[in-house]
Simulated scan of single mutants.
Amino acid sequence: MSSSSSYEVRPAKLSEAQAIADLHVSASQAAYHDLIPAEHLNKMPLAKRVTMWREAIEFGDPQVQVALDGGRIVGFVGFDRSRDKGTKNTVGEIWSIYVDDGYWNQGVGLALWDAAREALVEEGCTTVTVWIPLRNERALRFFDLAGFKRELNTAKTVPMGDIKIEEMRLKRALD
């Protein structure tokens, strides 16, 4: 799975925090509409989400890159070192990756993954992980195609709004 994308991917700018937050809300609604009841999605107020992304962009925790189509943000990825306790500092993690649902299956996610992978390699990471809800078949398929393998012994229950969902960690070597 490699990209020959026509999308521009670059580090996010502070001025783009609002657009990233808006996309985060709309893309998560599209991605999780069959998995999580609407009243449990996006409980975080938009202003708080904007602040969260502004701080991530400003402090690089996580690093945030955006994909653009004609100057419009159509996807973003947040990544950095793994947040999992006990992991080596050579383990990176995709913290989040979202694409406007009008751009699904058009190479945006792949372009974002390629950019995150390259940046993690530059930082000295040798492996990368991602946590995915077990019932999110689209995301599981995407990461399977990107060479990630499911770590069956990592399933955990996490809160999302007022409900809990099951997630599994996927992992792959960074070549």
Rank of each mutant, 00 (worst) to 15 (best):
M1C: 11
M1R: 11
S2L: 03
S4Y: 01
S5N: 08
E8V: 15
E8H: 03
V9I: 15
P11L: 02
P11W: 02
L14Q: 11
E16I: 03
A17S: 12
I20S: 07
S26H: 05
A27M: 01
A27F: 03
S28V: 04
Q29D: 15
A30T: 03
A31F: 04
D34C: 05
I36W: 12
I36N: 10
E39V: 11
E39L: 04
L41Q: 14
L41Y: 05
M44E: 13
P45L: 00
A47S: 04
A47D: 08
A47L: 00
K48C: 00
K48S: 05
R49Y: 00
W53V: 04
R54I: 01
A56K: 05
I57N: 10
I57L: 04
I57K: 07
E58I: 03
V64G: 07
V66D: 03
A67Q: 01
L68T: 11
L68W: 06
R72V: 09
I73F: 01
V74R: 00
G75S: 09
V77Q: 05
V77K: 10
G78C: 15
D80R: 14
D80L: 09
R83G: 11
D84R: 10
D84M: 02
K85Y: 06
G86S: 06
G86N: 07
K88S: 14
N89T: 10
N89A: 09
N89H: 09
V91E: 11
I94T: 05
W95N: 10
V99E: 02
G102Q: 13
G102I: 01
Y103T: 01
W104A: 01
V108Y: 02
L110E: 06
A111S: 14
A115D: 08
A119S: 09
A119R: 10
E123V: 07
E123N: 14
C125T: 13
C125P: 10
T129V: 13
W131A: 13
I132P: 14
E137P: 04
A139F: 00
L140P: 02
G147T: 13
F148G: 11
K149R: 14
R150I: 14
L152I: 14
L152G: 11
N153D: 15
T154A: 05
A155C: 13
K156G: 08
M160N: 06
D162V: 04
K164C: 05
K164M: 04
I165H: 06
E167N: 12
E167K: 10
M168D: 11
M168T: 15
M168N: 10
L170P: 09
K171I: 13
K171V: 15
K171F: 07
D175V: 12
D175E: 15
